[in-house]
């Protein structure tokens, strides 16, 4: 795989305040890249530099090998940009909206008609082709915006919060569309706050905090890096002391420090370093040791936990 987006020591300052600090990362062709970070982390500034709207203070971004500073036009032909707002002309019909942007990308008029029909079909808006854009629902407008990003068949889609403010069904539709677009070979770079989406569809994730890259890798790699141990909760019916003595002897078991009282005297929480097989063996040891185990649960290592572990709540 080759890097299609290369962010090279990007720095962006507004006045004296840094928004992005010496950010460097690469996105491979065909990736669905989730760009995650708290509000004010510098995600939108990075995206605006990448889409040639903002001039960087230092560093550069190359898209498809073209510099956003020196070859803005080439970069624009390679990217489809969907901002975190709709940006639609309400007095236009749905097909006119796509046709207009097709013309803005210099697509000849005789090719545009078929293209518009194909795009409307892709985002399931064919039945609304002659409706004014203002009559579309929020989810439909978002799908129309996504169709707009595809009019010139770009290599890279840059989407700023594509699912924000959508209802669960519309969110699922957008997610399915992104997966479909990745399947046909598009590279997708999207920023989001919805960590469930990141876990579900991203092939690679970058976590940004206070303008710096706090973590980078595949979701599995991040989990491995940031949460190497598994948090396990065990509730026993009785014989807690016996359980503790068994657990203390097992390799890979540590007990978290400064653990708050959980209110249940028969419950114990531990960090375990090991595979699923090792964890299963740990449970077997307890049962074999005559400990009546009531509950045995592992705290989820979801993206939210990874995100919380990676970030410290800093803002620029």
């Amino acid at each position: 795989m080759t890097a299609i987006i290369e962010i090279d020591n990007l720095t962006k300052r507004y006045g004296g305040r840094p928004a992005v600090r010496e950010l460097s990362l690469e996105v491979q062709s065909g990736d669905i890249f989730g760009f995650v970070g708290p509000n004010g982390a510098g995600k939108t500034s990075t995206i605006r530099v990448m889409t040639t709207l903002l001039h960087p203070t230092a560093g550069d971004i190359r898209v498809g090998g073209h510099s956003v500073i020196k070859e803005a036009r080439e970069v624009r032909s390679q990217i489809g940009y969907m901002p975190d707002f709709f940006g639609v002309y309400n007095d236009m019909m749905t097909w006119e909206y796509l046709d207009f942007f097709g013309a803005c990308y210099e697509i000849p008029q005789n090719e545009r008609k078929g293209l518009v029909e194909d795009l409307l079909e892709l985002v399931d808006l064919t039945h609304r082709r002659n409706d004014p854009v203002e009559k579309l629902s929020r989810g439909m407008k978002q799908r129309l915006s996504l169709a707009r990003t595809l009019v010139h068949d770009p290599q890279v889609l840059i989407l700023d919060e594509p699912a924000s403010g959508l209802d669960p069904r519309a969110r699922a539709e957008i997610r399915a569309l992104l997966l479909e677009l990745a399947r046909i070979g598009k590279t997708i770079f999207f920023s989001t706050h919805i960590l469930a989406d990141v876990a579900e569809i991203c092939t690679r994730v970058g976590i940004l905090e206070a303008g710096e890259l706090a973590a980078f890798g595949t979701p599995e790699e991040l989990q491995q890096q940031l949460m190497p141990t598994r948090r396990v909760q065990i509730t026993v019916l009785k014989k807690l002391k016996q359980a503790m003595s068994i657990l203390n002897k097992l390799p890979g078991v540590t007990f978290p420090e400064n653990e708050e009282e959980n209110g249940n005297p028969n419950k114990v929480e531990l960090d375990f370093y090991g595979t699923d097989e090792d964890l299963s063996a740990l449970l077997a040891k307890l049962v074999d040791g005559g400990v009546p185990v009531l509950h045995f649960t592992e705290e989820g290592r979801d993206m939210e936990s990874v995100f919380l572990r990676a970030t410290k709540g800093l803002v620029t």
Binding site: R73, V88, H152
Partner: peptide
């Protein structure tokens, strides 16, 4: 105001 200027500026227009 309707936030379409940024969209136009990222096209080839």
């Amino acid at each position: 105001e309707r936030q379409t200027l940024d969209l136009l500026r990222t096209t080839l227009l």
